[in-house]
Write a protein that binds this DNA or RNA. Sequence first.
DNA 1: GTCAATTACGTTCTCCGTAAGGATG
DNA 2: CATCCTTACGGAGAACGTAATTGAC
Lengths: 318, 318
Amino acid sequence: MKSWRMAFNLSLRVLQAFVELADCRHFTRAAERSHLSQPAFSQLIRRLEEDAGVPLFTRTTRNVTLTVEGELFAERARRLIADMQSSIADLRDHATYRKGRVAMAALPSLSADLIPRAFAAFRRSYPTITLELFDRLSDGCLELVRRGRVDFALTAPGPRLHEFDSAPLRSEPFYFVCGARHPLARRRRIRLRDLWGLEMIHMARSSSVRQHLEPVIAKAGVLDSGIEIEQLATLAGLIASGLGVSLVPELTLFQFRRRELAVIPLEAPELTRPLLLVRRKGVALSRAAEAMLEVIVEMLPGAGRASARRTSAAQASG
Amino acid sequence: MKSWRMAFNLSLRVLQAFVELADCRHFTRAAERSHLSQPAFSQLIRRLEEDAGVPLFTRTTRNVTLTVEGELFAERARRLIADMQSSIADLRDHATYRKGRVAMAALPSLSADLIPRAFAAFRRSYPTITLELFDRLSDGCLELVRRGRVDFALTAPGPRLHEFDSAPLRSEPFYFVCGARHPLARRRRIRLRDLWGLEMIHMARSSSVRQHLEPVIAKAGVLDSGIEIEQLATLAGLIASGLGVSLVPELTLFQFRRRELAVIPLEAPELTRPLLLVRRKGVALSRAAEAMLEVIVEMLPGAGRASARRTSAAQASG
DNA sequence: GTCAATTACGTTCTCCGTAAGGATG
DNA sequence: CATCCTTACGGAGAACGTAATTGAC
């Protein structure tokens, strides 16, 4: 079905060969530099000239020079070669993690410790990739994903999650935190019913932890201290001062590892915070973002499962 | 002997296919638009991705989208395609005389009549080619050629002619010009000996005609009027007024075709002015310049000989 | 006579099309 | 089950290398 005249298929190789000959004006040498036999090289130039419709060189067996048209084309050919090579280099740089950008959003609890450590590890492996981080509450994370401002978000379930591709990364267990002198401070494990009647300090209602905790603790019969704070550090300080106790997810524990505090695993399988990887629907991650995700997953407590790392295209939408 | 890793040979066809798919995100349609079978198209994209080292599309059987790397490459690919096509178009335009430039130098005698007519004819055939003309005396013509300012010159032999490629275009016969009432005005032919004792008006000594004439007329025993003029029109006026007679080469006759003047062929085979085509040594003419030369040769009196039109590379240097 | 480009020719390999296979909605 | 991408395979043509030829100095 190639009924019509086949179009001129200019290629990088041909351009390079042409410029090589334009430079050294010697078929045999130019052929060597192009890693071709001299006749093959000769044929290549001939075909180029046929396609062009005009001789590009004048040759006697002793002398090879560019024609006027050849000179003009040589200028453009050099530009084209440079542009093509730069495009290829750019593509390869992205393929080999020498170029790229990862933008992500994450809950403040993750952004304070896990993500910084992940960034540090990532940068060691891929020092030239640009990194961006937005620490936002759940809604903010989702909004950034929706707008395409970030490649992905690490966040808790939120409203309108069905608009995204989301996959559970991990289910995070909760820990009970109290002052070191608290009656429960020496316990090895805590159950929900142990909390009955305790005065509890909560995170602000806007936080995903609080939203997740709310229905459960309502049934557990804990007393609400009335204090609502936004920063984990504040929470730690309040507990250290004996003003109450709290439940916090595992990834925030770095804030509570202080002598004045006791941190005890909560045995409540039904009370875990799902940590989601959220992305735009149907949009693949960049290579750099994939690599970042890999680093993060490796760094999560209880790593080793490969399931969350299969990020190709198949997801359970939330 | 292709021992090493074959380099990435990006070609226009591949880029076009890639952009086609990036645009319509549908293998079957993109394949059709690229005039390829769908599997062949698929393979082409796969090879491109292999060379790139990174997937450019994410495909489910139902959905094809660009990856981040694909988006980046698509931008550059569009630019590359445009640049390549423009380069090809430019080359083809030169090949088909839609673009180009002819710069030439010629003696004033030729520049007044022959060249303007040649330019007019040339422009009818190739209206978009830029034309440049320098009307200079012999030395000026050669200097312009030497500096590469013009493609070629039409001039008389001059000093240091060996520096150039020169080829005789034509040997121009001389004509005797006198007033209509001059005793010789009715003659059909004039011989050199007929000029004995006549008062003659010459062109300035700097003119090639004068230089060529000088040794011959010295022997012919003519009287020098003492007038030296630079413009042919002045010469014509002086002769018309009966102040003398002159010998002029054929291509200047357009200035002397007036009722008050008689123009008579001079029978003196030894007295002809060679008209040379002079070019830089070893530099081929542009396609446009070749075409111009062809037009000029056709227009020369006594055209039809193809000898002077073979301008390839072989010349007798002067 | 030597060096250098072209032509001739046989081989290899790329690239394409047809046909079968597999996944998705 | 219909659509659409991929894999498999066989053939046509492009491109390459070796060898012979032509041409310039």
